[in-house]
Design a protein around this nucleic acid. Structure first.
Lengths: 132, 132
DNA sequence: CCGTATCCGGAGCGATACTG
DNA sequence: CAGTATCGCTCCGGATACGG
């Protein structure tokens, strides 16, 4: 089994009945904020407030939840500095950083095909509109 | 840098406020059945019933919904043969097939890191249990 | 500054029943 | 065989208020 092939992917990879951890990654990649947060962290250490400014639209609650999940999965470290006012820094781990390459693949594919997808949708919807 | 891709190099590509199509792909990759269905279709043409057997646990309703969305996005073609009983065949388009490479990246990354993630979770949860 | 607690609407998905 | 139609549950995520 070489890498960089052009042939069919092995279906058995996903057929492991218990979803062998793929589901967990899908959940993170699929949710609303994780990808954005990881992307911001990819450029270096960030504080909580800083992240909230960098990720427009995210609420305090969702930023906390997202960071906790990343921390739990070992993708992000959280360091508290016992200062006044409190200061907490977040940073990608090696694993977290390696995920940015996966995200990159996701983004590249999306950008490469967004035109085709959009056009396909437009055509599909138009076809459907004509058949009530 | 990379060849054959768009010129986007900065991960901040995700910062495009309107989510430039990445959200759509995340939604498909993140939902419960799309990846499984695409993987099964990657080995060739399949009929509806066939897919339902190949993807254990999927309901008729969800298989229909999943296939419709894939068709709408131009990732799958649907051909109806006017026979009795009816016979409908699904097949990946070139775009759909190219997505299998993205899925492969997802699966590979997940398998490579599932151990570390699982262990990190175990440790995190244990730490938390000790602090009520 | 950095969180946690609570309430609530909406989307995703499963179960079931019914058609051509 | 290959769908469509309904109902109901669950859980994500937004808004808001409060605490260290």
């Amino acid at each position: 089994m070489s890498v960089g092939h052009t042939e069919v992917t092995d279906p058995a990879a996903l057929s492991c009945a218990e979803d062998c951890g793929v589901r967990d990654v899908q959940d993170r990649l699929g949710d609303k904020w994780t990808v954005h947060v990881v992307v911001e962290l990819s450029s270096g250490v960030r504080r909580f407030r800083e992240l909230q400014r960098l990720v427009p639209g995210i609420s305090q609650r969702m930023l906390t939840l997202t960071l906790r999940r990343l921390e739990r999965d070992g993708l992000v470290t959280r360091t508290v500095h016992p200062t006044v006012p409190p200061q907490v820094e977040y940073e990608l781990t090696a694993t977290g950083y390696s995920m940015t390459r996966l995200i990159r693949a996701l983004v590249d594919w999306s950008l490469d095909h967004r035109g085709i997808i959009a056009e396909s949708r437009r055509a599909y919807d138009e076809r459907r509109e004509a058949r009530p």
